[in-house]
Design a protein around this nucleic acid. Structure first.
Lengths: 232, 232
DNA sequence: CGTTCAATTGATCAGCGTCAAACTAGGTGG
DNA sequence: CCACCTAGTTTGACGCTGATCAATTGAACG
């Protein structure tokens, strides 16, 4: 692959510091593909052949068991997913499907592993990225085990709100039923959780969120960096 | 540090393949300490100064928020913990405390990072270990989100049972209230979950577990490698 | 303008947590 | 050696959170 996206990929933390020659090696084996919405990119249990990089659009990672399904994460540009499966050369633990029309780069796992062994800077970046993902999951788990559904919603909204710079109106980007699944509740329950946050100055109309009194909401949500900070 | 434990540590997947000289560097800066039970080794939010290796005893990783607390994992010999915090040089997301008298090796984070940069084999091992931890957490999260508490208990017992080679009697090693917290329920609820498994041939007296009809229990638990297999 | 699917609302119910009390078992001191 | 103390576990009663089911509303799209 050689295209306009190459510099974009190169600018990712994962690829930023590696040697040019090794980056070229990776790119030579790479595919850039555009997928329509609702396409299942990978399936839970399949062998991991490619490391994926979302260039454009959005992808949902989900998992199922015994007829139930849950959203584990949503991946937006520009970031990678299923790095851990690629590293361990193990079957995927989650499925991935496009939410909208998306452009995705596929890097053969064998290439990633080969470059990993010869490029120390890339190795360092892989470890840093993986550690980041791990810590993100720890936070998600703490969120699930330590908070009620209303608390989870309140903190979710505050995270998006502060990340966007405390705007008057904020867009929920994600469909409500998917948000509900991500937060570990049913769509009906999310509806009710939203209503119960009205008492704290939160109004959600369609996908537009308004927070009239952030201090009040913070009083309920009690956010902590050890669960709610993206960095670290 | 130079002691009888050195070869033990050397034999860990994390240190097995690295150059002797680099391993020596790590060991020179290491401390071996013995801690009494119920000692808080690290505290959520503190900066990560050391990578820890449990040589003997057992350590519990837990996390708290707003007066609530939950058990995230139990670490038994011989394995490491808080690798991700060490790598990212970020504050701990979990606290760790000894459950019993334990011997633990402390490796200064700066040493670990320095050796990582010069030893490709060690770097590979770190990545492999981290990816393993990540996948373990994905499974834990799936367990929590997709299963009811009785299903979680049934699968937990089956995992221990098969790992121990399907013995007639199996010891629960962990205190029930901690197991309850790990499985995301209250001690009272665990008691009731245990009773409800009697219908599937499970009896638990004290810390002794007996499974009279594994096939029956499997029918209820519906274990899957994507949640319940330790490997992968 | 009808079709479709998400979102909402209401009613009901099950799972699970909370509270309180009784029951162990392990350890200590008389 | 036994009585007692402490802490974990169990049991029961009760209530809340959140899931389920069913019906309605709303909004996007052909």
């Amino acid at each position: 692959m050689r295209s306009a996206e190459t510099p974009l990929i190169r600018s990712l933390p994962l690829f930023r510091d590696m040697a040019e020659a090794n980056f070229d090696t990776l790119m030579r084996g790479a595919y850039l593909q555009t997928f329509p919405p609702q396409i299942e990119l990978i399936t839970e249990g399949d062998p991991s052949d490619f490391l994926h990089v979302v260039i454009d659009g959005s992808v949902e990672l989900c998992a199922g068991w015994n007829g139930r399904e849950t959203v584990m994460a949503t991946v937006r540009p520009i970031s990678t997913f299923i790095l851990a499966a690629t590293i361990r050369n193990a079957p995927y633990l989650m499925s991935a499907r496009t939410l909208e029309k998306s452009r995705i780069v596929l890097l053969p796992s064998v290439d990633v592993q080969a470059v990993f062994d010869v490029d120390a800077a890339f190795a360092r970046a892989v470890v840093t990225e993986l550690a980041q993902c791990y810590r993100g999951l720890v936070k998600h788990t703490k969120d699930l085990k330590l908070r009620t559904s209303v608390e989870r919603l309140a903190n979710y909204l505050l995270r998006k709100y502060t990340a966007a710079g405390a705007p008057a109106a904020l867009d929920l980007v994600i469909e409500k039923r998917r948000l509900a699944s991500y937060l570990g509740m049913t769509p009906e329950n999310l509806s009710r959780a939203i209503k119960s946050l009205q008492a704290y100055g939160v109004t959600i109309e369609g996908s537009t969120v308004r927070i009239s009194d952030p201090a009040d909401l913070i009083g309920l949500a009690k956010p902590t960096p050890r669960i709610d900070d993206a960095a670290h």
